[in-house]
């Protein structure tokens, strides 16, 4: 009896220690997460709430909060042609950039996933733009694109072509900015794809080869399906980043010509800081946020693994 009691007490004590240990583990985990939570709350969630409140007011930075206007700033977007042009420019930018960047990044990742001579150098070359300051990159590319003195113009003339206005042409300015951003951001997608490719067990490919699959079939039926979660991550993050493009537009084109590069974040900046209309700028920010959430949700739904 006493022995049974001792065993039960020992078990209870062990359980208590385990619970205590688990609680301590949770506290440790919480402390690890806490800085990120504070960062998100301070620099993301609280500003979002404040932006939503500001969007309901006639509000400017210097003038402060004026009249409560309710949903007026939201209604204004329907009749603001520049807002729609900005949305169009933003969507076009995303469509120019994201698919091409992903195809190129995946192709490069497949070429360079395995270690061979010179791989490290090529990888470094691909990753370097990613860690270079966007403002510096924008200045350099604007110089390269310059319609009279750009490096690209010299190349065109050397190859026997006429000079081309990239940034001052309504049809070419946005693709030119997108091309620069693909070059800048491709390293991010590339490195994620390389990690994803390394995570695919070799035996699947061996089995496929035994079954007589060719390279395309291996890619189509093994690589692509197993890369799906990675692909979803890259597509969603790149779409979000591309929706938020600002610096290259600010530096290279100032939204012109004819609003052809006036993406939504640039227009929000212009309204808030140049036109002293922070209420309307906040409303557009909220709408952009909602749109991004919807697009991200749709992308995740279509690319879900269990489909």
């Amino acid at each position: 009896m006493a022995q049974q009691l001792g065993t039960a007490q020992s078990a209870t004590s062990f359980l208590g220690r385990m619970l205590n240990w688990r609680r301590q583990q949770l506290i440790v985990a919480f402390l690890f997460v806490l800085p990120a939570m504070i960062n998100f709350a301070t620099f993301r969630y609280i500003p979002i709430v404040q932006a939503f409140i500001a969007s309901m007011y006639d509000y400017s930075l210097l003038g402060g909060f004026g009249d409560f206007v309710g949903g007026q700033n939201y209604m204004r977007m329907f009749t603001d042609p520049v807002f729609w042009r900005s949305m169009q420019a933003t969507v076009l930018f995303v469509l120019y950039k994201v698919p091409l960047q992903i195809v190129l990044a995946l192709g490069l990742a497949m070429l360079l996933a395995r270690q061979s001579i010179g791989t490290a150098i090529v990888r470094s070359a691909i990753l370097t733009p990613m860690v270079t300051s966007i403002i510096i990159v924008s200045i350099i590319w604007a110089m390269m694109y310059h319609s009279q003195q750009g490096l690209l113009q010299s190349l065109l003339v050397t190859l026997g072509f006429q000079k081309i206005a990239f940034l001052s042409d309504t049809g070419r300015a946005l693709p030119a900015v997108a091309a620069m951003m693909i070059w800048k951001d491709i390293g991010f997608s590339f490195i994620i794809f390389v990690a994803g490719l390394k995570g695919i067990p070799e035996m699947y490919y061996e089995a496929g080869i035994v079954d007589g699959a060719n390279r395309w079939q291996l890619f189509r039926h093994i690589t692509l399906p197993l890369l799906r979660p990675i692909m979803m991550f890259v597509i969603v993050t790149q779409t979000i980043f591309s929706f938020q493009v600002f610096v290259p537009v600010y530096q290279m084109t100032q939204g012109g010509p004819l609003d052809s590069t006036k993406v939504i974040v640039y227009y929000i900046y212009q309204m808030g800081f140049r036109f002293q209309d922070m209420g309307y700028a906040s409303a557009m920010s909220i709408v952009t946020l909602v749109l991004l959430l919807m697009v991200s949700w749709l992308q995740m739904r279509f690319l879900r693994m269990d489909d």
């Binding site: 001052s168 309504t170 100032q254 012109g256 010509p257 004819l258 140049r274 002293q276």
Partner: peptide, 20 residues
């Protein structure tokens, strides 16, 4: 003036770079 200046600069850019 700042609002005016911003729009005017865009307008002049469009005058120079477009055929609108």
């Amino acid at each position: 003036y700042t609002e005016y200046q911003q729009v005017f600069a865009e307008f002049m850019q469009n005058v120079a770079q477009s055929d609108a």
